[in-house]
Amino acid sequence: MDDFDVRGLVQPMRVALQVTCINDALYPDTGRNVVRLLRRLGVDVEFPAAQTCCGQPMVNTGYINEAVPVLRTFVDAFAGYDAVVTPSGSCAGSVRHQHAIVSARAGDPLLAERSADLAPRVFELSEFIVDVLGVIDVGAWFPHTVAYHPTCHSLRMLGVGDRPTKLLEAVEGLTLLPLSEAEECCGFGGTFAVKNAGTSVAIGEDKVRNVLATGADVLVAGDRSCLTHIGGLLDRQRSGVRVMHLADVLAQTRPPGGGRR
């Protein structure tokens, strides 16, 4: 991967967007913002139309057999690309940590091999920008106060570290406010949010309290699933705090006539 220079064009890198099922169906704007952002950074990202889902919702509920054909579809859709970018730490984590379990269960050595080959080329958005493109300042403009929730799978399963906050700190006009107990789970947890709704909400309410204490206008995270939960609580409380995906913020630029830095 080091041999490639996506803007220098020794050989153009073929990059696919795995938009994720939740963004596809519920948050297409986030998908569009990833495209806008990556194009601005010189990456001619493609959207393989055969893609569906990473299979995590099924695996985490215990339906591993049911995830096998979903994994097959995933590998077929993305195998031909040099890199796959996904705006979700959870989906990237699932690819790297769960696909091996699913393919082992399928008892299909070829699928196991193909998915093991693909997994290291799947990047969460901030990893792709910082590690593959080597960019910190993406040229964004966002004149708001922001709190950032790291999300458990980005933080612990994937280990994205401070990549997202570095990207946010480099955004012109953006003030990043410290969120206390930031590394604590928001309580979403996939089907946990419904199976154990009361506990999920109790955990989420503590997260919301910490978010409100920052006084930020916007809560940013790298996973739409967690944001649906936290945002649902914030909206129910009529808090006035908006939730945005990292891509939604990084895609913003100073409007024409606003003058660039």
């Binding site: 938009v19 963004n23 596809d24 169906a25 519920l26 948050y27 297409p28 704007d29 998908g31 569009r32 959207f47 139309a49 709704a197 909400v201 989420g204 309410e205 649906t228 939960h229 945002g231 649902g232 609580l233 909206d235 129910r236």
Partner: peptide, 15 residues
């Protein structure tokens, strides 16, 4: 205890 998001006019795929 939580609101649901508004459904978009078209999916990303359709767009």
């Amino acid at each position: 205890s939580r609101d649901l998001p508004e459904a978009p006019q078209e999916s990303f795929r359709k767009w």
